[in-house]
Design a protein around this nucleic acid. Structure first.
Length: 222
DNA sequence: GACCAGGCACATC
DNA sequence: GATGTGCATGGT
């Protein structure tokens, strides 16, 4: 008799939390830095994102106003280590321009919006897709939306909870439909998935030592 | 040198 | 709606 999805998700969470403990996400010093990091990490290794963010910090550009006033080519030069630097510089400018055009440059203002409205508004910004929007909502604005990423897809696929061609919204719905809409839970859960994913759920990674190894899984499904 | 990394927009069918 | 492609650096 297969366990319910809810039970499975809770068991996974408990096993990951027991193994890794609280993650304290998002790894950033400010809300501005969270948003910048969410955009820069698109399809990119986090280590390279850290280099780019360090450059922005050294240039004192990690404030909304400084980002608004900085020319895109200057941003592009500084964020070069994160890859796709021309595109990402444009995306940073798009976000900041939207923040000023629609919300007078007041990031805190976004917290007042209902979650659905907030998400739809973020998705209307060029360069903000579903995962980036959810990262901003969950980690910078502390509202309960689940962030599904490449690690999440691999994990659920490996354990047979979703099929190969699963779409983003289906992936996050697995968590949102079976768990309480708790911001702290979603925060911790996604961070734990990244923790286990970096170690055990990427190409050529091994299951040895994985906290989820004792659960039914297919190592080839990553 | 190939493959990968905490995606997204756009074109095409 | 599904699929393919460009964007680009740095690590393995």
């Amino acid at each position: 008799m297969p366990r319910s999805t809810r039970q499975t998700l809770i068991r996974f969470y408990d096993a990951l939390f027991a193994a890794y403990g609280p993650q304290g996400w998002w790894p950033a010093r400010s809300r501005t830095e969270i948003v910048v990091g969410a955009i820069l990490t698109q399809n990119t290794n986090w280590r390279n994102v850290e280099r780019a963010i360090a450059n922005l910090r050294a240039a004192r550009l990690l404030t909304w106003k400084a980002l608004r006033d900085a020319p895109a080519n200057k941003l592009a030069r500084l964020i070069r280590p994160s890859g796709y630097f021309n595109i990402k510089a444009r995306r940073l400018k798009c976000f900041v321009n939207w923040l000023w055009d629609r919300h007078r440059g007041n990031f805190e203002d976004l917290r007042r919006l209902p979650l659905g409205t907030l998400r739809a508004e973020l998705l209307s910004v060029s360069g903000i897709g579903p995962e980036t929007a959810d990262s901003i909502i969950l980690y910078a604005l502390r509202k309960p939306t689940f962030v599904a990423d490449a690690y999440t897809a691999r994990l659920l696929r490996r354990h047979g909870l979703v099929n190969g061609g699963v779409r983003y919204d289906e992936l996050k719905a697995v968590f949102e439909d079976h768990l309480p809409a708790d911001e702290r839970l979603f925060n911790q859960y996604h961070a734990l998935i990244v923790a286990v994913g970096k170690k055990h759920c990427r190409p050529r990674a091994r299951c040895d030592g994985c906290p989820l190894q004792r659960f039914e899984h297919d190592p080839r499904a990553c």
